[in-house]
């Protein structure tokens, strides 16, 4: 086995695994802030796919996509965390199951 070459698919599967873990986190975590972190994990997983594909195609565009995803993630984080702060002020909890003023 050649120790200097790793198949691209390994990276992609790692990415898929991370993505799935992110989705699972989104489903099972009960604190808003960790739910949000799970989303960040998903985005990171996607980024890994992008970079792998960019490497495979020798296309810079894939990397730039990742760059933009990062910027957007930063913007989203700013807004998301601001929302989380405002919800904490209003409800004094971050538990997903207690954010239920509007249930039937």
């Amino acid at each position: 086995m050649n120790f200097d070459v790793v198949p691209s698919s390994w990276y992609l599967i790692l990415s898929a695994l991370l993505f799935s873990l992110g989705v699972i986190g989104f489903l099972i975590k009960r604190s808003l802030i960790t739910v949000f972190m799970s989303i960040e994990l998903m985005l990171n997983a996607v980024n890994l796919s992008f970079v792998t594909f960019a490497h495979d195609w020798h296309a810079v565009k894939g990397q730039i996509f990742v760059f933009f995803v990062m910027m957007v993630a930063a913007a989203e984080a700013a807004v998301g965390l601001a929302i989380i702060i405002s919800i904490f002020r209003a409800r004094a909890t971050l538990n997903v199951d207690q954010i239920d003023l509007m249930k039937l």
């Binding site: 808003l32 998301g80 929302i83 989380i84 405002s86 919800i87 002020r89 209003a90 409800r91 954010i99 003023l101 509007m102």
Partner: peptide, 8 residues
Amino acid sequence: GKGPEAAI
């Protein structure tokens, strides 16, 4: 309280 909930 509903506003932030909606937003989140």
